[in-house]
Simulated assay, not measured.
Amino acid sequence: MDKLKELLQDNLNIELRSAVLSNPRQKEAAEKIKVRPLLQKEKLLFQIETFRNHQAFHRNVEPEEACRLLQKAMENMRQMQIETRRHLYTVLVSKKGKVTIKKKALACERKEIDLSHNRKKHYILEEGVPVPFLLDLGVMTEEGKVVKSRFDKFRQINRFLEFIEDILPELDWSREVTIIDFGCGKSYLTFAMYYYLHECKGYNIRIIGLDLKKEVIRHCSELGRKYGYEKLTFLEGDIAGYTGADHADMVVTLHACDTATDYALAKAVGWGAKVILSVPCCQHELNGQIENDILKPILKYGLLKERMAALVTDGLRAEYLECAGYDTQILEFIDMEHTPKNILIRGVKNGKKGENQKAVKKCEEFLHVSPTLGRLLE
C-alpha cells in the first residue's frame, strides 16, 4: 500500500476536486465513500462522506487524517478514482492487496471549485457552464443556466453520469471502447455519455444509439454532426433484431419498455459486455402471469399486483445476470418523487457463473412465471 499512501499524500491538497472509493469487498462495509476539499476559517480540510444502508455520514478531517482513513478504507474497497484539476487517477486493489494506479491527463483543465462548507451540490455537468447538447435539448440557456422546468432532467443526467464514473475502472481504456445504448429516445443520456467521456475526459470511445422512432433518430444524428461527434452514431431499429455489432464493452438500456429490456440484456450477455446499466420500464409481462394461492389475498389488488410483478421481474433479471457471470446490484437511480421508475440494474462481468439457477427456478415455479430473459439466456 506504499504507492497508495504516496498518491494520497501528493494529491490531498487544494488541487483535489474529488475522490470516490467504491466496489466494496464485504456487504457490511461502506457502499461508497466520497471525498472533497473544503476551507473552514482558512484551514484546508477534507470532507469524507460515507454511504451505508442508504444513509450518508459526514466527517471533516485534516489532510494527514484523511490520508490515514482513506488508506484504511481501501482495505475493503476494490477501486478509487481521484480527480484533480489536471489529472484523473484510477486505483485498483486486487484480492491479494496489489495496488495498480493509472494516471490520465484530463482533456481540459477544470475550473476552481467552491471550497465553502455549505456549498451547493456539485454536479458532474455544472450549472453555469454551457453544454452544447443541453442547450439544443432545452435543458440549459445560452448562459449555462438550467431551465427551471427541466431541472429534474438535468439532475437525472448527472445522476446517470455518477454511475458511469463508478464503472470507469472496469473498462479497458487502452483501446477503443464500444458502448451501445438500446432505446436511446431523445438521447439526453447518450449525448451526456459522449460529452463526458470523450470531450471532457478524452477517452477513445464509440457510442451507438438505437431506437425505433425514425424522426428521433434523424434529429439526434443531425445534432451529433453539428457538434462534430464523429464516433457517435444513431440507428433506427428494433433491439431484438439488431445485428449491427458483434461486440460491446458496455450496454445501456434506459426505460426500454417491457420485454425490450430483456432482449437488450440478452444481447449484452451474448456479447460478453463488461458493464451493463439498465433502468427497466413498464414491466407488464409477469403481471399477466403471476399467481399464487398463498399470495392471492394480496394479488387481488391490481395496483399491488402490478408493483409486485415489476419488482419480481427486476429481481429475476438481476439473478439471471448473476447466473451468466456478472456481479449485479440493484440501485436507486433517482428519488422516487421524480419518477416511479427509479431502479437501476448494474452488472459488471466477473467471468464466474452464478450457482443460483435452482433457487431461481423454484421462485419461478412458486409464482407461476416464465420471464422472457430466462428463456433467451437458456
Rank of each mutant, 00 (worst) to 15 (best):
G270V: 08
P340G: 10
P340D: 12
T328Y: 06
V360N: 01
K274M: 10
I276V: 15
I239V: 14
K267D: 06
E306V: 02
F333Y: 11
M250D: 04
I294D: 08
P340I: 10
P297M: 09
D314C: 00
E365H: 04
V251I: 13
H284T: 06
L367W: 01
K352L: 13
M308N: 01
C323N: 14
E322P: 00
Y263F: 15
L265C: 13
R307W: 02
Y242M: 06
C257R: 12
E337H: 02
L367I: 02
A359Y: 07
F366C: 15
A256N: 01
L304Q: 00
A324W: 06
I294E: 14
R346S: 11
K362Y: 15
I276P: 08
E291A: 12
L295V: 06
P371W: 08
G354P: 06
P280E: 13
K267S: 10
Y301L: 08
S278A: 14
T259E: 09
I239D: 06
K305Q: 11
I239S: 00
G351C: 10
F366E: 13
K353I: 02
C281I: 14
K296R: 09
T372A: 14
D246E: 11
K267E: 09
T339R: 10
T261E: 02
L344G: 00
A240W: 01
C323M: 06
A248K: 03
Q283A: 09
G354K: 08
M308D: 02
P340N: 12
A264H: 08
C323D: 05
R307N: 09
N356A: 14
G241C: 02
D335R: 12
K349L: 11
R317Q: 06
H338M: 12
A273G: 13
R346G: 07
P297V: 02
V279K: 05
F333K: 05
A264D: 08
G351Q: 07
I345V: 07
H284R: 10
L295W: 03
D249M: 09
I239L: 07
E322R: 10
E332Y: 03
Q289L: 04
L304T: 00
D249V: 11
A359Q: 15
C257Q: 12
D258K: 04
V279G: 07
